[in-house]
Amino acid sequence: MKLPRFSRKTLCIPYAVFLVFFVIIPMLVIFFYAFTDSNMHISFANFIKFFSDPTKLSTIVYSLVIALITTVVCLVIAYPVAYILARSSMKRKFVILMLFVLPMWINFVLRVNALRELFNLLASLKGLEWIAGSNYFKTVFGMVYDFLPFMILPLYTTMLKIDPSLYEASADLGASGFTTFTRVTIPLSMPGIMSGVTMVFLPSMTNYVVSDMLGNAKVTIIGKFISDYFGNDWHMGSMIALVLLVVVFVSTWLTGGFKSEENVRGANL
């Protein structure tokens, strides 16, 4: 056998193999399990059960709401930070950016654990006892803490790329600072917003380590649900995973995650 000629396409083989074994086949397996019963017969029972069970639908809704709140809070915090950092002529702004990004380099389970201890400490203070029982608040707080860098970074990089001459032009044409912000800054940073939203919204629907550790396992989000079901009933677990996949797909489509690269201005990390 003649050795195959090395071409640029050969370089893709490891990636293709990886994709097949770790993405495509597992997805097919999930699909298969979702639509079979425990005797491995084709069945839509799980599908029907999922959409007729208020518990499961509620959990999806709760996860969506938690993820939505997390995303909005992240955006509200991150946008001014990114804006100020990108537009200021501060000498050490890199340091400030680093301070926001630095926590990402520490294992997040460790960080969430630290946060748990902090909450414990706060809850032992007078007047702050309510913290101990407010599981939803703690969960959202943990999610925001965990995902904030993922919002700041894409926003910052997009805003950095906005040509300053556009601001000057806007001012030349008589626009007020506020008008410039709404007509120039926001539209041009839209790709960063979308990218940040995608990167915060999707993981916060499934990151049940946060809800388990900070919510005392009394807050159940969809990721925890899947994990619980995989202990006993792979078929239902797969069905929930599949539904989540569809939700993720739709939200990615809506936020423009599938658009070609150049429109995103390199904001996708």
Partner: peptide, 29 residues
Amino acid sequence: DKEASERINELWSRVKSETLDAWAIIVIV
């Protein structure tokens, strides 16, 4: 056994998560 395990799992998922009223789900969806 298989049926019991299914019943118990459903019970557990009802316990672990907050169940909304049907109208609330519809409104939110």
